[in-house]
Simulated scan of single mutants.
Amino acid sequence: MIRRLAQLYAGLLLYGVSTALMVRPDLGLDPWGVFHQGAARHSGLSFGTVVIITGAAVLLLWIPLRERPGIGTISNVVAIGLAADAALALIGSPAGLAARYAMLIAGIVLNGAATGAYIGAHLGPGPRDGLMMGLVRRSGLSVRLIRTAIELSALGAGWLLGGTIGIGTLLYAVSIGWLVQLFLPVFDPRRREPARTAARPT
């Protein structure tokens, strides 16, 4: 449990840092990042504060879906926003297009690793992931359809609020699934076990 908690909080901390690395180049954010940025610009609140408020609001939607949060769920709501604000205070905007792209790509890769770490801890899904799975169970629709609908809704709302959509949005969309799939076995021993079993001599 100590290892899993350490992995959970390391993953959430790095997720917040990865968010800052994607914000600073100003080349486009992931769908929820676009929403958080747009809401922050209109509300006057910090980016991280909007992340926390949004996570708490999404968590309330779990109630009618009868989803149960874990310690990882509650930690996700608070820790990522705090980490994002701290990282944004320390990380400045890069100078030059090459440096901006380098920071963006580093942020996306780190985001994939951080996601693999906190999911692999098995201490509760994030608010948005739990909402997705609750809607899938209630509606009978596919994960792909529900996830796409949620992401497009966040992206559209964020764009209307003035969030940044750009090449970073596209790069995130085409790479994040592959990156999470790559990093999950690194942080989740359960996903490595089938490979070990298959490798044992009979």
Rank of each mutant, 00 (worst) to 15 (best):
T148F: 11
P201K: 14
D188Y: 07
V78R: 06
V109H: 10
T54W: 04
L27P: 00
A89E: 14
R196D: 11
V34K: 09
F183W: 14
L13H: 01
L29F: 01
L61G: 14
S18I: 02
I71Y: 15
S18E: 07
G140E: 10
P25H: 11
L29I: 04
V78I: 15
R128Q: 00
L104R: 03
G70D: 11
N111A: 06
A173S: 03
R192C: 05
A157S: 09
E151L: 03
G28P: 08
G70W: 15
A113E: 07
V50R: 08
A40R: 07
G140Y: 12
W159V: 11
F187D: 13
I165C: 00
P64R: 04
V109F: 08
V180Y: 11
N111R: 01
P201V: 13
Y15K: 00
R3Q: 12
R24G: 02
G126A: 10
G28H: 07
L97A: 11
V186T: 15
L21P: 06
Y101N: 00
A86K: 13
A114D: 08
S18P: 01
A198W: 10
G38Q: 13
R68S: 14
R41M: 14
L131Q: 03
P69R: 08
S43Y: 10
L60G: 12
S175D: 01
D26M: 11
F187V: 13
G120M: 07
R138N: 06
I63E: 03
T49K: 00
